[in-house]
Design a protein around this nucleic acid. Sequence first.
DNA 1: CTGAAAGCGCTTACAG
DNA 2: CTGAAAGCGCTTACAG
Lengths: 357, 357
Amino acid sequence: MPSGEPTIRDVAARAGVSKSLVSLALQNSSRVAPGTRQTIRRAAEELGYRPNAIARTLGAHRSRTIGVFVLDLHNPIYVDILDGVQAEAHRLDYRTIVVVGSSDRRAERAELDKLMEFRVEGLVTVGHRLPAGAGTAISESCPAVLVGAEPRLPPHLVSVSTDDIRGSALAIDHLVALGHSAITHVTGGNNSVARKRERGYVQAMERHGLQARIRCIPGGFTDERGYQGTIAALGGDEPPTALFVANDFAAIGALAAAADRGLEVPRDLSVIGYDGTRLSGLRSIGLTTVAQPLKEMGVAAATQLCSRLDTGQEGTRRIRMSPGLLVRTSTGPPPRHAGVSEARDRPRAAVSTTHPA
Amino acid sequence: MPSGEPTIRDVAARAGVSKSLVSLALQNSSRVAPGTRQTIRRAAEELGYRPNAIARTLGAHRSRTIGVFVLDLHNPIYVDILDGVQAEAHRLDYRTIVVVGSSDRRAERAELDKLMEFRVEGLVTVGHRLPAGAGTAISESCPAVLVGAEPRLPPHLVSVSTDDIRGSALAIDHLVALGHSAITHVTGGNNSVARKRERGYVQAMERHGLQARIRCIPGGFTDERGYQGTIAALGGDEPPTALFVANDFAAIGALAAAADRGLEVPRDLSVIGYDGTRLSGLRSIGLTTVAQPLKEMGVAAATQLCSRLDTGQEGTRRIRMSPGLLVRTSTGPPPRHAGVSEARDRPRAAVSTTHPA
DNA sequence: CTGAAAGCGCTTACAG
DNA sequence: CTGAAAGCGCTTACAG
C-alpha cells in the first residue's frame, strides 16, 4: 500500500472544502452545488487522486465486490461464462475477484476463505461442482448463483444452466433428419450434467421411435475418455453411423478414434459434440456441436446476483437457457449401406489422415 | 458487507483480553503468552471469527495483495502461467486479484484502475503486450514483473521470458537431424515475441549452412493465420518438406492447410509448433512443439515480485528460462525424393482425412 | 448546500 | 506479556 498516494483529505485541502463534501462530490451526490463539484473534481484530477477502494469498503459497509469461483480456467467454456459474468458485473459497477478451483481441496478451501476475507457481497460459481468448503462460504449472508451446476438448492441460491434435455434433442433431431437411426451416445460420465444429456438423448430417440437403437457407452468429458468410449462404441456388432458425444473435448477424442479405425468423418461416421467451444470450430476440427449460450449465461448470473444485492429482492430460482445447433463438417448423411463394415475393411494403408496415431 | 460477522472486538470480549492482544495472537506474535494465545484462538474459533482483510489492509498499511493482469484467458499458455503465479503467490501468503485484458482498451484501462483502487502492492502482467494505461498503473510505487513481454524496461520492472532464440534452435536442430533442409518458417507476425522466434530460426538455419533455404512467410498467432501462411508457404516453386510455425494455434492451422492440400503429415510434410499447449497434445493433433516452462515462468514471476515486496530489494532484471522440445507425431523424415511434388499430384479423392474442409 | 464528528475493523507504536 | 490510544481513508447520519 503505497503511502504517497493523495487522499480525500488532500483533495479537500486543495479545493478548500471539507472531506465530507469531497466524498459526496466524488459520489456524484446531487446534494453538492455544481460549482463546488467542479472545483473538487478538478482538484482531484490535478492531484492524480485515486479513491481507495479498501477504505471505501470499510466506511460504506459494503464492498460492491462479488467473488467468482471458476472451477477450471483450462476449460474454455468456463472462460466464456466468466467473460459474461465479468462484463456484466463491471457494467453494473461491481468489482470481481476470481478464485480458481484446484484439485487440492484444502488449497481450494483456503482460497475461498481468503475470498470471504475480502467481504465480497455475493458469489457466483462456474463449473459442474461447487467449491470445496462451499458450505461455510455460501452462508445465508452471502447470496450465490451457480452456473452449470444444479444441486438441490437452498433458498438463497439461484442456478443458471442450459436446457440439456433440449440440447440433446437438437443433436438427435439433426442426425435423424440426416437419415441416421443407429445413433450411439458416448456419455459424459456420472455427473449431473452428463446424466441430463443422456436423458435427453434417450427421450429424443424414443420420440423418433428409435428406442431399439438406444446405446449408451460410458465416456467422460475429456479427449481421452471420448476416444476410449468411441473405440468401444465402434466395436459392437451393429456399429453406429452416428455418435452423439457428451462434450466437445470428448468429441475431439472421438474424431481421433474414428481416424484410428480408418473411418472417414462424416462419410463413414457422423460425430456431434456439445458446448460450442471455439476449439471445436478450429479449421482442422470442424465439429458439429450443440452450443450453449455461455456468455449469456454468465451475464444472466451477474444480473441476478447484482440486482439482488442492489434491491435486496430475491429473483427467479432457476434460469434455464436455450441451446442452439452449430452445424459444421463432422455430420452428414449415413453411408448408403447403413453400416460401416465396408469402410472398416478397407486396408489401413489406403487411408490417410493428417493426424496419425 | 455482511454486518453480522464477529469482529476482533467480539473475540476480545469472549477471551477476556484487549483487542490488541487478539490482533497480536492472531498474527502469531511471540510477544503473547502461549496460554493467552490458546484462549484467544479458541474464542475466535468458537465465534467463527474470520479476519476482515479490508480492515487489516487499512490498518497495516499494506494489502499483501498483488494484481495479475492476464491478456487473454482463452489462450491456454497464459492460463498455465497464471496457475504458476497464483500458486506461488498464495504459498508466500499473498492474495491475488486478476484482471483480464480486453479488446476494448478503454474498458481494460478502467479495470486496471479499479485494480489499483485495491491498493495492490505489485503487479504481474501475463501476455505479449502490456495492459492499456500501464503507464499510470505501473508507477514507480508499484513494482511489476512482466511475463512474456519484454519492452525496454524502466528500472523498477522485471521480465520473465523464454529464450526464444534457443527455442527456435531446438526446433530447427530437430528437423535437420531428421534430414530436412527445406525448412520454411511461418512467422507469428510483427510483435517482439514473433520476431525473436524468427531471428532464432534464421540463426539456426545459418548455423546449419542452410542460409540458402531460409524462407519466412508472414503468419500470425492464430489458427487462421497459420492456415493462410501455410497455404502460401506450400505454393512456392520449391515447396518445403518441413514447417516451423510460430505457435501451436497457428501450427494447428498449418495441419489443416496441409490436409487441404492433400499432404499427409508427417509423411509429406513435417510441422512443428511452439508453446507446448495441452491442445497440441490432444490425440487428434499430436503436434511436435517447443515447450515453454509456463508454470515455472509464473512461479518465477511471483517469487521475484513477492520477495521484492518483502525485502524491498531489487532482484534480477531479466529472467530467461529454457524451452524444451516435445516430439510427437507431426514430424518425421522428409519424403525420400526431397520434395513433395509427387504427393501433391495424387488425386484429391484418394486422400481421406478426418477433418474435411 | 456544507462541515464536524463518529465509526468501519483492524494494526501498531507507546507505556507499563 | 498486556492494554489504552491513535490512526488508516473513507462514508454517513446529524446539524446547521
